[in-house]
Amino acid sequence: MKLKGYGWKTAGWMLAPTLFFLLLFTYGPALYNIVTSTAGFTRLFSSPANRNLLGVTLSYMTIVIPGAVLLGLGSALLVDGRTPARILARAVLFHPVILPTVAFAAVWLYLLNPVSSPIREILEWFMGGRRNILGSSTTALWAVALIGILKQFGLYMLYFLAGLQGIPQELKEAAWIDGAGRWKTFRHVVFPLLGPTLFFVASTALLDSLRNVDHIFVLTKGGPSDATNILLYRIFVLGFEYYDIPQAGALTTVLLFILTLTALLTMPRIERRVHYYGN
């Protein structure tokens, strides 16, 4: 007798739509792009904007990833618990995640403008005088990165909160009865157990920093003098404003290379977690 739920007969049609669109819009285009983009590589490093590109992208990621992860972790530790104050704080810290990035960026465009910003006294005190923060190549990248962090860290806070709730209460109580203070309990009990969550959040933050460039469109358009011109934004400009398809294709291949590398490095650990929680 043939057992039900076995074999390809049912699984085939159930998986068909997903596999079809996965091949048509992810693997197909990715392979097509890699194969056809070889021509663009020869000219890739002749333009100064491109030479700068990887440095700027790396700087942006170096600020955003640790910044958003640490802010997410810190917030999670502070808002953990069901007191009214913490529930309110949690909602406020999370709300940028559900706003369109372009809307969130438009808010900061107003807040950071040097003439009529409602927080200009704070900014002037902070910057030591009136400055056009988004218009200066030394500060623009920091501003754009900070806004990137503020937009996204609320999601990481939630992941950390879920991780914190997965830690058995008895372990914390045991440490606490043994006389461990708050810091010691965190350092020796909570933090080690958050390891898998931390790893997962860090890889999510890495992906987000590469794919979320919407705020650049509103705030700086890659300027001033390419100071905020990061990889995916540059792909857009080259491909859809200069119509330089070979170069945009070559940069897409670079992006796909970074993403695949990230996948290969992180997948084994995340996958274990997937299987571990699943079974």
Binding site: Y6, I235, G239, L255, A263, M267
Partner: peptide
């Protein structure tokens, strides 16, 4: 819930897509 040959392969094929978001493919997809 179903068992068939190649299930692991398909699992990884779908799993890898988490790392290849459609925005990275704006150019070829357009």
């Amino acid at each position: 819930r179903l068992r068939y040959r190649g299930r692991e392969t398909i699992f990884y094929l779908i799993f890898l897509q988490l790392f290849l978001p459609p925005v990275a493919l704006i150019l070829p997809n357009f």
